[in-house]
């Protein structure tokens, strides 16, 4: 039976397309701001949220959403106060949420198998309900990027000047990090909490080597994201490997290939 014959695979591929496009586009901001680590921090916080949701018996995605949004705004807030450095705040939240997640999950009977899926992704796990949520989250992310295109570009390139020009830089930064959070939650089922940060970095870093115009960079990164997630899903289907690592390895290989070819061409 061909891969599209399976309903779970159809759902995974649709979700994968949404994930690739959003992670690719949002990844451009993550890479240009140089805050790759923040993606990892938010992803691990999301995992803590999943654990609490499982313990309370509510939908895991809601737990992930609440936790990752809370961490996104906490980072935006601490980065505006000079008392603690951004990376330090992320470093603490990141480890604490992950630890909390594992700690709490040890109290949840029968969910151990599923745990692996939340950490490394599982293509079997995308329900039709998840798919609906994915559409809503991806829609929110793209609407925000389209409406606040100029603002996000401004605070990424030159936050100081954005502030001088009267833009609410703190709120915009919180919103941009919220989009990172939404992307993480959207990707959680398929890519897993451990590896989602890679998806926020690799497609954008690959595209950055190929184009030098911000607008094109957004599009190319989104396209690369789709190609890498969908390609990785197909490979993981045939090799029967966890989807997250397969996607990330494919992305990393493509990044290395582009870097190698660019070095050789003048």
């Amino acid at each position: 039976m061909s891969l599209l014959g399976y309903v779970f695979m159809q759902r995974a591929l649709i979700a994968g397309t949404l994930i690739g496009a959003t992670a690719g586009a949002i990844g451009v901001y993550v890479v240009l701001r140089g805050f790759s680590f923040i993606g990892a921090g938010i992803a691990h916080a999301a995992f803590g949220g999943v654990a609490i949701a499982l313990l309370l018996g509510i939908e895991p995605l809601w737990g992930a959403l609440a936790f990752s949004l809370a961490v996104a705004w906490a980072i935006a807030y601490t980065s505006r106060r000079a008392a603690i450095k951004e990376e330090v705040a992320v470093g603490i939240l990141f480890a604490a949420s992950m630890a909390l997640g594992i700690f709490l999950l040890s109290f949840v009977p029968g969910y151990r198998a599923d745990l692996f899926g939340y950490l490394f992704g599982n293509i079997l796990s995308v329900s039709s309900h998840d798919l609906l949520v994915s559409f809503v989250l991806a829609g929110l992310v793209f609407t925000a990027v389209a409406v606040l295109y100029k603002e996000f570009l401004f605070i990424t390139f030159d936050p100081g000047m954005a502030e001088v020009s009267g833009f609410p830089v703190g709120v915009l930064q919180g919103l941009l990090l919220s989009l990172v959070a939404l992307t993480v939650v959207l990707s959680l089922r398929v890519v897993g909490a451990v590896l989602v940060a890679a998806l926020l970095v690799i497609p954008a870093a690959t595209a950055y080597q190929l184009v030098q115009d911000f607008h094109r960079l957004l599009f190319l990164s989104a396209l690369l994201g789709i190609a890498e997630v969908v390609g990785g899903l197909i490979i993981s289907f045939y090799l029967d490997t966890p989807s997250g690592p397969t996607i990330v390895l494919l992305s990393a290989a493509l990044f290395a290939l582009v870097m190698f070819l660019r070095k050789r061409s003048p």
Partner: peptide, 20 residues
């Protein structure tokens, strides 16, 4: 940062344009 000169100069108009 992958921006052209004209795009950088255009940012000088953002303050007049305001949000959105």
């Amino acid at each position: 940062f992958p921006l052209r000169v004209i795009d950088v100069v255009l940012m000088g108009r953002y303050g007049i344009l305001g949000l959105g």
